[in-house]
Amino acid sequence: MATETKESALTAEAAADAILALQKVIAAISASDPDSFFRSADTLQQVGDKLNELSTGIGDRAKILFMGGADGGRWEGEGAAACARIVGQFNAFLMEVLAAVRQWPEPVRGCGEALQRTWYEVDAVLAKHSGTAATPEASDPGGETTS
């Protein structure tokens, strides 16, 4: 009988520790904002779209000026060639930047999803075991409730 009481006390103590530990995790993760990752991923997508519009717009206008528009008019000559080369270099830079920006939303969104899933998992575990501390005798001894 005395052994059982001691085991119950230990189980209750372990359960209380577990609840306290989970509450610490809850408090820590509650300070996070997964939505901020989703919003930022969406904004980065928009930034990429706008950079693409800008690059396309510059390319289209340059093409008309240096290669000829609907009326066939174009700026020719040595100076025109130099200018076309400069504008092309600027646009090439913009496209390189765009290629990088296109890759950013996914990891940012993924990190937000990871935070969100962690929050759900911890919350679910806490909800499942929230009665353990109050009724330690009902819990599985030896940490069986942990999986």
Binding site: D17, I29, E106, P107, G110, L115, R117, V122, T146
Partner: peptide, 20 residues
Amino acid sequence: EGAAAEQGQTEPAAQTVATP
């Protein structure tokens, strides 16, 4: 780092309860 964050996301709950 995005991939690492995703891979590590399930650990807190599992480890917390396994080693209270």
